[in-house]
Design a protein around this nucleic acid. Structure first.
Lengths: 219, 219
DNA sequence: TTTAAGAGTGAACACTGTTCACTTTTTGAA
DNA sequence: TTCAAAAAGTGAACAGTGTTCACTCTTAAA
């Protein structure tokens, strides 16, 4: 289905959307390969055979362009985490799966995850999270989702109830974010850096989620 | 004591060290206030009344200059964490204190901590950590220190022994790093963002360390 | 006093994001 | 089909960046 480009759109508009998409495509490619530093407007323009100024007919600024890449990336994370939530099985297993999937999806595109949290600009996006009802799954709201996941665990008596769901979720998210960040930033993180450990990424993620969920359990 | 500038140094050399220090001082000021993005060679040159080219007589590149700031910063972190280790009291309290102090010290200069982990360049530094004997405290080696702290806990039977000390330390460091990173990046992190929580930074750090150490305990 | 080393500089190079006047193409209506 | 308005696309420029290089000037030692 190609709804967006077939209803209520003239040929000109469809053409425009195609060029716009080609810019994003080229940006995505460069971004994934070399990160945000390798991405320059002039290089992008070269790659799609337009002048640098042309890009500004489609995006207000480089930041706006990159923000759109990040938005799509976060939507991807949320989708994956959400499907982990909808799986069957005991609560603790679903919870563990969600934590893992967050980190794994984040690490599918390390450059994206890095960029999303290294720019100060990118964090303004989080302002939107405030006015979000976290009872329904929302595009940008991976955190609100985590909160309700935690709340469910508390109701079931499987997670500690001496702190609020939000507080618990913040701690968990911090830990997930830290692991994802270190793996993304330090080449060969769990296995050989900063110390030769022989610990595979898989084993590390397992241990990490295990520690977190144990610490989040009652008593 | 001003050893470095009084023995084996000519007046010229002392003068040189003074200029060099003034560059670092100016850089430190700008860096702390506005982060690495606000720091430009020309601006630095303006502030110390030299030409931009002059700075290259003292530092090979901007990166080299910033690396020196980071190095001092990490030394500061290690110093503080080390003094927490040397405090008296039960092991678990000392351990908790170390975790807290790491995050608190990191957050004394959020811009530094951000910069240290946002540049890919900065991570090359970690190569040095490999050839470090983690039984003795080393300038740059906050991680190796954490490993021995964990090892002590395992020997005392206060931390789980089903995984290696290095693995456990990695997980803990990840979690600390994540919390520090989020607080540094998201203005008003635990209190109001991404959700109004009323959770003070202090309470959050307490909860975070509590969760981690519970998850790291045996059984 | 002379000489060589080192400190300091202005101008330039190659890059960046961005803007703006300008031309070209496309569109919708008379 | 013609014509004006709108939109798409462009080259040149601006202000900024890190960095280099030939050059001057000061300092230190012979």
């Amino acid at each position: 289905m190609d709804d967006a480009s077939s209803h209520d759109t003239s040929p000109a508009e469809r053409r425009r959307l195609r060029v716009r998409a080609s810019i994003l495509d080229a940006a995505e490619k460069v971004f994934a390969a070399e990160g945000s530093e390798g991405l320059s407007i002039r290089r992008l323009a070269d790659e799609i055979d337009y002048s640098p100024a042309a890009i500004y007919k489609y995006f207000g600024s480089k930041e706006e362009l990159v923000d759109e890449l990040k938005e799509a990336f976060f939507a991807e994370i949320l989708t994956h985490v959400d499907s982990a939530r909808l799986s069957t099985g005991p609560y603790m297993e679903r919870a563990k799966s969600c934590l893992r999937v967050y980190m794994e999806t984040a690490l599918n595109k390390p450059q994206h995850y890095m960029a999303a949290f290294s720019d100060v600009q990118g964090m303004v996006e989080i302002d939107e999270w405030e006015e979000v009802d976290h009872s329904q799954s929302n595009k940008h709201n991976a955190f609100a989702f985590l909160v309700s996941m935690v709340a469910e665990g508390q109701e079931r008596g499987e997670l500690r109830q001496d702190v609020s769901d939000v507080a618990l979720a913040m701690s968990l998210w911090s830990a997930l974010h830290g692991a994802a960040t270190l793996i993304a930033h330090i080449p060969g993180f769990p296995e050989t850096k900063p110390i030769e450990s022989g610990l595979s990424r898989d084993a590390f993620l397992d241990l990490h989620t295990d520690i977190l969920l144990r610490g989040a359990q009652p008593q």
